[in-house]
Nucleic acid binder design. Sequence first.
RNA 1: GCGCCCGUAGCUCAGCUGGAUAGAGCAGCGGUUUCCUAAACCGCAGGCCAGAGGUUCGAAUCCUCUCGGGCGUACCA
Length: 547
Amino acid sequence: MLKSFVHSLLKSAWQELDHSGSDEVIEIEVRRTDRPEFGDFASNIALTGASITGMPPRELAQQIINRLSRKGVKRIEVAGPGFINFFLADEVFHRALRGVLAAGERFGRSLHGAGKRVQVEFVSSNPTGPLTIGHGRQAVLGDVLASLYEAIGYQVSREYYFNDEGGQVDMLARSLWARYRQAWGEKESVPEQGYHGEYLVKIAHDLKASLQQPFPLFDSATAQLFKEEALSRMIASIKEDLALLNVRFDNWFSEATLHRSGEVKRTLELLDGKGAIYKKDGATWLAAEEYGGTKDAVLIRSNGRPTYLMVDIAYHINKWERKFDHVINVQGADHHAQQANMKAAMRMLGYPEDFLAYCLHQFVTIKAKEGVERMSTRAGKFIELRVMIEDLGKDVVRYFMVARKPESHLELDYALAKQETMDNPVYYIQYSHTRCASIFRKAGNRIPRQWDEVDLSLITQPVELDIICLLDRFPEVVEEAALTFAPHLIAEYALTLAGKFHRYYTDFRVLTAEQLLTQGRLALLRGVQCVLRQTLRLFKISAPEEM
RNA sequence: GCGCCCGUAGCUCAGCUGGAUAGAGCAGCGGUUUCCUAAACCGCAGGCCAGAGGUUCGAAUCCUCUCGGGCGUACCA
């Protein structure tokens, strides 16, 4: 990589300097510049090193430059307060491009997490209703995060944890039964605290057709039947919604199994053994605050039923026993307090601090456009994910959901996203890929057989070298996006690359009369297309050959 | 009250492990097509980076306070 090349130059020069005055170690920082006159890369080593050596920064910079190898370097300058600016030789860029071409589809992938297993748990919405746009953000966020970890070498498992036990599910069953009775023309009403959405009406009618019995009494057998029917149908519907987004899970984990297997009970005993729980007001409490939680929390209610937290702790022990090296939970901001308590519990039980990480995200809100009637009626209303996907298309939804950093609120201008699809960044990126494909179709037999042997000597335009520099950076971006839970970096990157390419396309012709030039530019194009395809693949957005 | 997140162009947001003149997209205005797809490109305009202090060679970025918005602070999940 270009950056590490510069880094190694600096490192050996720094080591040649006499540091007898101090044995302090210095962190050598090399960064890409944002201005051509500052060169391709710059280092502030002389600024940070000034205090160690006692030399003025500019003088120190000069000393370092005097000891620098000039191999692969076009020019080096001291600039501003003492920055060292590097202008690299064309051959170095050419080597970088060859690296991209040699790696091909593997470019951007790494072995950072080789041999390690990570689980990403996301969505995990209760199967009591259809997915909303809020779940949509989480679905895409989790899915892309999982892909990013796969890209850096981890073995990844996508998991959906669903609640199929407890009060909420009982309420769902009761609500469905009421709708079922209505389907038979009876006057039964959905409980005040129940689920009033239209979706249960539809399920009730389907159910009537298959069961063909009135079930006039909501006795325990009926409750059980309606619970099972409600759950299986809701889960099927959620799976359908997710499939529309191209999200698939490796494992669907049922909460009920944790109760049946006795894991909840065993977990409680485990916590008791650590002295982490106490009784108060007829309930059993977790001493969370002592271990960094926000507040002590109830584990077993006074009615004997376990809380969400109680079961969640058992669930995480289960995850640990499944031998994951890391588990990442993608959750909404409303779970924040819960997360602190969960981490406190893990601490009490002695699990490593880096086993459990949360990717917390803020909510999606819909921006209503003033003066637009339809939108104002929709404002504040839930929008079903399915409806949004049908309106905007899978690719657009996926892109928008991860284009912003998770901890920022995502305010989606629904009307705009729908109307102005032509100005959509998704199409902008896809079109850049299409343009590459189009040129390759035209190039025909001029396409080189062996990419790594192409003569690149005529690839000397500043834009061309700039694009290579950007391609070269891709693996860094992937790694950072994964490790800091920041898929939006990929979106930014793809947009930048597409933009540079579109400009290049406008100013320069790839297919020219000069064979050497054409071959070189086709090689560059190949690299661009390859990286564009990787970004789209990470997002699971299609990379069209034609548009 | 306390805790977490956010406050950057008219709008939606990048940039935040401190670096040299703060960026993109959209919206606005004006241009570009003998030539690989104009779903593109170029130009103009637009900012006391919420505000006030502090830390230092240097702050949108770090610290403190204030103001504004979201979320949490359940024997819901």
